[in-house]
Design a protein around this nucleic acid. Sequence first.
DNA 1: ATGACGATCCTCGATCGA
Length: 262
Amino acid sequence: MRIATWNVNSVTARLPRLLSWLSSAEPDVVCLQELKCDEAAFPSREVGELGYDVACNGGGRWNGVAVLSRVGLGDITTGLADEPGFEGETQRRAIGVTCAGVRLWSVYVPNGREVGHPHYTYKLRWLEALHATVLAERDPGRPFAVLGDFNIAPTDDDVWDITAFAGSTHVTDPERKALTMLAEAGLTDLVPRALKYERPYTYWDYRQLAFPKNRGMRIDLVYANAAFADAVTDAYVDREARKGKGASDHAPVVVDLDISAR
DNA sequence: ATGACGATCCTCGATCGA
């Protein structure tokens, strides 16, 4: 079973890329983030022609998450329980599904903007709600994972130069503490292989030649319970998908598991 | 070669991203 997560930075702008990637990588399940489109505008027909069902939580100009599956899709949960909002509105940042007996969440954690900004407070509160969801769904007997754009680099080695991030979001102790809480809830950070260079970055800014210079960050993460992690046979960042014109600024993270469908 | 930001709409400038 092949499961991937990919922040596509607009599913409609990325549709040709997404379809060709689905055809070549042949994932069974894909968690998507930053759809930037309404549910009604999601290209369900196009991905359906490749055999995928869709569960989508999207709306408006920003955010939006979905899961594509060609091995079944059930128990769809839109949003976290008691999910905090920003400026009075709940945003489209989480969707939970069950695919072939594997429980998955596709998440797009708030960016935070600046340390001390209301959006940063929102980010930390949102992560508390995610933690609560993980605790509520804890079941050692069932493979479980939270996949998505966490907007947090777990360690200093997960950014190209930690000194360039002094005072920035994504690397602060409170953000990393939220990841520690997920670990204490029984989840493991599945670190993928990098297919080039040493560090498995998943995001490179569009600006200033960040990608060719490999000035990246590992912020797209897979947090999995033991039943999931123990079944993993391989995990890698598909940096090929970041190349060239028309790419997302994130690359897909691909995880292979030896789990038979139930 | 992987090449100097891109997507969106309340659209040609402001907002967001990280």
